[in-house]
Design a binder for these strands. Structure first.
Lengths: 213, 213, 213, 213
DNA sequence: GATGAATGAGTGTTCATTCAT
DNA sequence: GATGAATGAACACTCATTCAT
């Protein structure tokens, strides 16, 4: 009988709607300043309804991270698995992937950074906690894998690939947050895409192993 | 009469003590999760006393930004004004300055990023707001100035210096926050200084204008 | 037409099913801690359905009291109306009745005691309120009647029979609740039936008029 | 310096004031229906203030139990330790003690019974939990000790003294609650003291070992 | 100036009740 | 009739801020 399935689908859709609303509000205000009521209003629901779909504010927030991390992994695994003629091309694909990730959820970072407070982790169900950890680990390994290819190929400097991961991720998220901050202060220059392009270009040039080296 | 001056000095010293305490707590817990009582305890004062020196939590926090921005400007202006034999040396001085800034207040960034919420700006006195804006603008101009020297000198690629500023600042703050996040998740690798060194090295290599170019 | 009657019977049966489920849950958790959803789950119905049969949680709860009070009255009226050879035998029948009442719904008491909050009475329909009052009065009169027989018969001390009623009822309900409490605290001794037997024995011996008196 | 001591005393007094207010409200409405705001209003304080003295609603409530249990133990230990010429006199002292306990806090029972919900125990600090358990155990042992004297003395029937404890306690608390219930229903007869006297008299007579036995 | 007890508005969460399907 | 998703009022608890001492 398709009825159950339809109900199931509608339930899932509602959950997604809430997540979309939550993403918007969390992105704008940050975790602490976002009230459940804000999210409810954004989703055109009442506060109580949110709790039919998510156990708590923390869990709702965490589930956004899951979504983003899944997206990130999908994108990175594309970059890894696709055959490229040159490392150069793979690098371009990586940059494209980072752009996509940015488009998908600019505030990944806010999300991820919020987790800093280990207190907020207390309320999270261990399963969710585990899932996030697993996904995050996989994402970092994926990135490291891409760099390892370049190192093995003598294309980029011989640095611990995890260091490169840290730098790329820091660069990426740092720029996003910095552009956000600038917006608030109404500074003129915020050309995120251009900044990204230049940043990645510099990063890639900086990693490149000189022929003479 | 020196009495007034002594009083003044003591008041200033007390204010500094509170700021030091506040910095420690804000750095550890972030703005929202820091209670005034936490700061009071750290400063070995009572909560009420904080309000003799700062109008509000927001203002206390903002004043930390002022301090950091002042520090940043001093450091950057050293880099600008000191005569160096080569741009290479100036670059090394800049990196050193960034290290110093990091030592001075790793969480500058948290601080600065917190300002995202434009609502929290409402409570800030316009003077303080102005001061921060002025200092921030000066800091960014200072950084841009340093890069301009390199551009004029044909040492680094011809990119809008403000873009380089955004990238350097994003890189810097992004790495700090990312390392903080990693700590929470107890991931093994967090060697902030090494990561910094590698990151700046890559950044500098990436900016460097090839002789052949 | 029997259709209406069948419908009527089915409706009544459904109502009874709900009450049975409700009794179980109320007994286990107490009034306030019982959620309508708990009862619905126990009855294998949806929450909304409960409201087709009962106007509110309070009314559902009250209707349980009605049922218990009816049961009590039936039992007590047996004890009154049955002819016994001696008061002694009637007394034994009373004790048996109390056992039966306990078996029927140990938590009568919880139920009855819950009514303490006069606020909760506000929501109850006056008819239900009246019915409970009438039934309770009848139950107390029935008990008093039994004692009056003993007094008239010179078998038990000459005390206002209502006082004896209060004592018996207090003794009965107090022991039930106390044993419940002990369970929670995992104290070893909870042998409710034995305690009951001993308690009633003492009560009867204590009421017994000495031959010499 | 006496200042600290005075502050300490005032703090203790305030705590007592809150407990008195809480006792009144809990007694009238029961645990669940009592809002912290009610207690605050009764104590002429704001809700927040209650939390300066008690960690939670549950802990405030539990601390009332502690107070009552302490009082009970003091009273019972008097009955045990005082030398009496006859068991008869000791019994009278026990009855007097029960009266005193009733005067001190009629709702002991409500308090104690509320603990039924093991869920509410979760929030209680283990220390408090322990304290209550210890005090309650001591109270029960004290009561049992008194009965043991009577048994050893051949004054009362040879029943497990703990059974007598259960019965006495059930009788006592049951009558109190029953009288409370009657009040709500505005039944005429509520002469608690008389009922108590009669109840204890019956209980004692019922326990008494016949000379002929 | 310094204190710290008191305040009370604000927020996450629960749950009796409703109502569109 | 039955459902169960949605509602929204209610309530425990927090914490920036104030003010009597």
């Amino acid at each position: 009988m398709g009825i159950k399935q339809r109900k199931q689908r509608e339930k899932e859709r509602r959950k997604q709607e809430i997540m979309v609303a939550a993403k918007r509000v969390f992105s704008k205000k940050g975790y602490d300043r976002t009230k459940m009521e804000d999210i409810a209003r954004e989703a055109e629901l009442s506060p109580g309804t949110l709790y039919l779909y998510f156990k708590s504010k923390g869990e709702l927030h965490a589930s956004l991270n899951v979504r983003v991390l899944q997206f990130i992994n999908i994108k990175l695994e594309h970059v890894i698995n696709e055959p490229f003629d040159s490392f150069e091309q793979r690098q371009q694909a990586l940059i494209k992937a980072m752009h996509d990730i940015y488009e998908f959820d600019a505030m990944v970072l806010n999300n991820v950074f919020h987790l800093q407070s280990s207190e907020s982790l207390k309320k999270m169900s261990p399963e969710l906690m585990d899932e996030i950890n697993t996904l995050a680990t996989r994402a970092l390994r994926n990135l490291a894998g891409i760099f390892q290819v370049g190192i093995d190929d003598n294309q980029i400097v011989d640095v611990h690939p995890m260091a490169l991961v840290d730098i790329l991720w820091g660069l990426f998220s740092g720029i996003v947050m910095w552009e956000e901050t600038k917006k608030t202060f109404k500074r003129k220059r915020y050309a995120l895409n251009e900044t990204f392009d230049t940043a990645f270009e510099i990063f890639i040039r900086g990693m490149r192993r000189d022929r003479s080296e």
